[in-house]
Design a protein around this nucleic acid. Structure first.
Lengths: 263, 263
DNA sequence: AAAAAAGCTATTGTCGACAATTGGAGACAA
DNA sequence: TTGTCTCCAATTGTCGACAATAGCTTTTTT
């Protein structure tokens, strides 16, 4: 145990074993190894990482503070299970902050380099569209979606950076991560959806380059509202399925799944 | 030690000793017993509260997460020292969220009870104005300011509640608390300032009752921007004073103060 | 006497152990 | 068979102890 610790001392994280646990859990969630409802046990994780419960406990505490985990006082922590209302609230939060940020950014001069970079990221969506049209399939597959998401993330991240408010950036990032927890298994985008995304992004960039803060804000607001609608549809669809599943008799399926996922 | 714990078990906080430490520190900061820059020692607080370091440590961790404390890796935690940029960022955050929230609230029907309560809270400012005019003094004293602040807080808190978004409410509350840390020793409001506040609040309520979301949003935005300007003036004034103080030779004053504050 | 090195002290980071609580399994009665 | 009660297992909340680190003091060297 002591050997294990000394062997992996100060490797990639900034030194503290606590951060090791923190990033470990975060990654487990981000990659879908832990999904909504899964328990996060202190003792188990401590054993898995070869460390004591204390740093794991602190890491969990931080994740709880950031809203990624829910904690039931004497019962442990689980990955948050977002409700419909949660999703609405998260998107409203994003809308409030991102729209404000883009308005502020558009009111100040933006460097050509940043504009170009934004345009570049916006245009990448067109690449996906062409790819999709050529393939003949109705929607993007999972790999493409992941790539697109990363591209979309960069676009919005840069947008936020232009507003020069670190706190807003931090909250928006946390909010997006939280939304992503729920959005693991979402449907691929269709051609129309890609078109719409591209139009939105294009107008936002135009608003920025022409100092038209109203255009940028209005467009981003609509952009986010569209995303929300999409997510709510997915949510309702998923919930309907779940309620069907629950109404069926539970033989060996559910217990097995629960045990596996927590392992 | 054990006796002390069992005697004060489950008093007012929800049972955990950790929350005891959390609220203790928070109150110390809110009441000005701990001011910006003061160290917050785990061991000292643990002794003071008659508990172990662990829950104190967790409480500090949470406060750090909420931005009330700054933590230097192996050196301990101190009450945050807000910079000029911090103040700007915090007010921008408030503006983004509160303006959005009031816009949403104004777009939905608001109950008469809430409108009346808001009007009541807004009118209280007039009471302070009359009090001030009668007294003949140029500005409110500290006690009056505290009372006014509490009144202002209630107004904005209710306003936020109307938007029905718990996350926004939470962040706004944290942000306001953070601002209050800095604003402990601020100047009392003048008659004009009270007038302006009252006008703003009145227009906001009007915007809500008449479903004029644009009016409500515009007014609140201006309201917050005014507060920011005020705070920045205070900050610059205070900083100028501090820099003067620092240019003087340090005999016994500074070291003594530092040691006392940590005791 | 000044600078560098060594040691000291106070504080945090981490650990293993114990107590308290909670949910459920199993016994028992109706 | 079903409802209730008791006991058990698992997990968290808290504790005291030890190790590591960083700043400060003292000593040594030039």
């Amino acid at each position: 145990m002591t050997d294990a610790r000394s062997s992996q001392t100060r490797k990639k994280n900034d030194g503290s074993v606590r951060d090791l646990a923190y990033f470990h859990i975060q990654k487990m969630i981000a990659t879908g190894q832990l999904v909504a409802g899964n328990p996060v046990s202190e003792l188990y994780l401590a054993k898995e990482l070869g460390i004591s419960r204390t740093p794991v406990r602190e890491a969990i505490g931080q994740l709880v503070g950031e809203g990624l985990l829910d904690q039931i006082p004497n019962r442990g922590a689980v990955v948050v299970q977002l409700t419909r209302q949660d999703i609405i609230e998260l998107y409203e939060l994003r809308e409030a902050l991102e729209v404000y940020a883009v308005g502020k950014a558009a009111s100040h001069p933006v460097s050509h380099a940043d504009i170009d970079r934004l345009r570049e990221l916006a245009d990448k969506i067109l690449t996906f569209k062409e790819e999709l049209m050529k393939s003949g399939k109705p929607a993007l597959d999972q790999e493409q979606m992941q790539s697109l998401t990363s591209c979309d993330l960069s676009f919005h991240a840069l947008l936020m950076r232009l507003a020069a408010n670190s706190r807003i950036v931090k909250i928006v990032n946390e909010t997006r991560l939280l939304i992503r927890i729920f959005a693991m298994h979402r449907d691929g985008h269709t051609i129309q959806r890609l078109d719409q995304m591209n139009n939105h992004h294009r107008d936002i960039v135009r608003g920025l380059s022409e100092h038209d803060d109203q255009l940028a804000m209005r467009t981003l607001s609509e952009h986010i509202k569209t995303s929300l609608e999409e997510r709510l549809e997915e949510f309702d669809h998923w919930e309907r399925e779940a309620s069907l599943r629950q109404s069926l008799p539970v033989f060996f399926d559910l217990p097995g799944r629960v045990k596996d996922s927590s392992r």
